[in-house]
Nucleic acid binder design. Structure first.
Length: 159
DNA sequence: GCCAACGTTGGC
DNA sequence: GCCAACGTTGGC
């Protein structure tokens, strides 16, 4: 039985960790996600091999900078147990971990940044429920349909 | 740096 | 369970 590949968008602040950083290290454990909705997408939805749009946030201009892939199934985020970590969570236990992460693997940089502004220009095709352009949404990990995936990547060579 | 919008915490 | 206070996100 084949499991259909799913698609995701993951945000990262390039000052903190950019697509170039991901290219350098190859694969990165996506630790530190402390939002339940984002956690649920990683823990319950992501499968090894899924496609990832790597989005640069909190920068100028924000937008999709590259393509990555999910390189593991979800596992307990080790930083929740690390007292020295910024992401330490005193309520998490090894028996009942609260936070999970996947590994993210570099695939390629886009030939140009697909900016948020440009993405907004295709809101009609992307749909109202696309969290990236939904008003007030701050989700850092979100699902992308195969139609949205194709549309967004088609913009790379669209001009 | 500002601040709107959202999520979480914790007292009650 | 309510909700005020606080913290965070992230575009601008």
């Amino acid at each position: 039985m084949t499991v259909r590949r799913r698609f995701w968008l993951m945000k990262s602040e390039p000052d903190c960790f950019s697509i170039d950083d991901l290219e350098r290290v190859g694969t990165e454990p996506w630790t530190g996600v402390r939002n339940y909705q984002a956690r649920n997408f990683m823990r319950n939805g992501m499968r090894h091999g899924d496609g990832v749009l790597f989005y640069h946030s909190n920068c100028n201009p924000p937008g999709i900078a590259g393509v990555a892939s999910v390189a593991s199934d979800a596992y307990p985020d080790p930083t929740q147990f690390d007292r020295t970590s910024h992401y330490f969570d005193p309520k998490a236990t090894r028996e009942e971990p609260r936070w999970f992460n996947v590994d993210v693997r570099f695939e390629r940089k886009l030939s140009r940044l697909i900016s948020l502004e440009e993405i907004r220009g295709h809101a009609d095709d992307l749909g109202d429920e696309f969290a990236l352009i939904k008003r007030g949404s701050r989700l850092s990990v979100m699902p992308v349909s195969s139609a949205q995936w194709s549309l967004l990547l088609s913009l790379e060579s669209a001009r």
